[in-house]
Design a protein around this nucleic acid. Structure first.
Length: 426
RNA sequence: GGCGCGGUGGCAGAGUGGUUGAAUGCAGCGGUCUUGAAAACCGCCGACGGGGCAACUCGUCCGAGGGUUCGAAUCCCUCCCGCGCCGCCA
């Protein structure tokens, strides 16, 4: 959520920053927010003046009662103005609700360093490793079946398309990747591992920005008004919701391995083959709560933590600086990590690492006290996938594929799989 | 699911329908003392939103939302959460 005062104090600056997102609806929303803000303050001044008056009279009533003096005239007057206060309150509440609805729908201000434009303006920042030629290996949807690790029809039978079943070494791979990634992040990158709920409340979803705007992307359990998490970012970032943190505790760094559930409502048919786009998948997520002045440097830190996973897995990847028009709603700046999949013949997003500045922390009430006696301020939040499993598995199957149809297991993963080779029938 | 008890400032913890935004303690900040520190003592110290150039001032907030009342942390209703016991289940 944007700071309404910032919007008020520097409307043109905010408008210019938001314009970089290339979303034509934003400008009108800003106008509406500013108009509602003016109405809100006008209504506030009126109700507060009336309240102040009534409070003073009430005090006088109390004094007279104590002194055993008559207060009937005052009481009558107070009773008369009661309805007026009530009416003003209703008006104020309506205006505030309308304002909140608008402001909750405004995206974060893009970071000045994010390239401007739509997805075509995304900038390749670096490339690591040696991509094998596209089409030089079997795509994972064939190889996975040949190896007996992938059984999509079984998943479709049990739940529907987009719910994969992995078997044997494929299932072991999920467990191994989880342990490998968690060990790397906790032992070498300093993260605290947390195990968190997969179903969360409406307030939690609102805290990280999924609600109210993206409800159609979420699985919802209506009977209890709970939502399945689309990423561990949601429960983990909300761990400290409405808390005032000690400055010495920052930065807080958490990692979590969870399944992720996404309806992918608008994605029908595109890039959905094999394991590329799923309704349920596993992911290890990294979340950091940091001091605002550290957030630029922290984005590089967390991105490197995600890149380290790919490098240990010996998978070629590139880092993309997302353009303003391609950056997510809550994010100020995002790097995507894309792994090379020679069988699919393309770069696949396996990690998205973002800095949200105070956008999430304002919604979620994540504050800290910069120094003893100082005013509380909002922390900055960041997260990065480290990594999403299915596309990592795609890249492992395709990039490490051998001419004989087996798959070499990179050294870092061998202890977790108990083998250096994926072979058919294992 | 049933019954009972709770939910108060960063934390702990008092609280009578009417100067209680809230005792007290801890933590924090400033000071006295000390070579320095500790201890002791003194003072300050909630959050959020308005108005004002400013000093300052006004309003709201005691789990959430309604209600009673001139006035609610305090009384009533609904809901949420925690704890205990019972039931159910693993």
């Amino acid at each position: 959520m944007l700071d309404i005062r910032r919007l008020r104090d520097d409307p043109e600056g905010c408008r210019a920053a938001l314009a970089r997102r290339r979303d034509p609806a934003v400008d009108a929303a800003v106008d509406e927010a500013l108009a509602l803000d003016r109405r809100r303050r006008a209504a506030l001044v009126r109700t507060e003046a009336l309240r102040a008056e009534r409070n003073a009279m009430s005090d006088e009533v109390a004094r007279r009662k104590k002194a055993k003096e008559p207060a009937d005239a005052l009481l009558a007057e107070l009773k008369a103005s009661g309805d007026e206060v009530k009416a003003l309150d209703v008006e104020l509440r309506d205006v505030e609700a309308a304002l909140e609805a608008i402001v909750l729908g405004l995206p974060n201000l893009p970071h000045p360093d994010a390239p401007e434009g739509d997805a075509s303006a995304n900038r390749v920042e670096k490339t690591w490793g040696e991509p094998r030629p596209a089409g030089s290996v079997q795509p994972h949807w064939d190889l996975g079946v040949a190896l007996g690790v992938l059984d999509l029809p079984a998943g479709a039978k049990v739940s529907g398309s987009g719910f994969p079943v992995l078997r044997g070494q494929g299932s072991r791979l999920v467990r191994g990747l989880a342990n490998f990634m968690l060990d790397l992040h906790t032992r070498e990158h300093g993260y605290t591992e947390v195990s968190v709920p997969y179903l969360v409340s409406r307030a939690t979803m609102t805290g990280t920005g999924q609600l109210p705007k993206f409800a159609e992307e979420l699985y919802h359990v209506a009977s209890d008004d709970l939502f399945l998490i689309p990423t561990a970012e949601v429960p983990v970032t909300n761990l400290h919701r409405d808390e005032l943190l000690d400055a010495e505790r920052l930065p807080l760094a958490y990692c979590a391995w969870t399944p992720c559930f996404r309806r992918e409502a608008g994605a029908g048919g595109r890039d959905t083959r094999g394991l590329i786009r799923l309704h349920q998948f596993d992911k290890v997520e990294l979340v950091r709560l940091v001091r605002p002045e550290a957030s630029d440097a922290e984005l590089e830190v967390i991105t490197r933590h995600a890149e380290a996973v790919l490098e240990r897995l010996e998978l070629p990847y590139r880092r993309l600086a997302l353009a303003t028009g391609d950056t997510g709603f809550s994010s100020a700046r995002t790097f995507d990590l894309e792994v090379w999949a020679p069988g699919v013949g393309g770069w696949l997003e396996v990690s998205s690492s973002s800095v949200f500045t105070d956008f999430q922390s304002r919604r979620a009430g994540l504050r800290y006290r910069p120094a003893a006696g100082a005013k509380p301020e909002f922390v900055h939040t960041l997260n990065a996938s480290g990594l999403a499993f299915p596309r990592t598995i795609i890249a492992l199957l395709e990039h490490h594929q051998q001419p004989d149809g087996t798959v070499r297991v990179p050294a870092a993963l061998q202890p977790y799989l108990g083998t250096d080779r994926l072979v058919a029938g294992a």
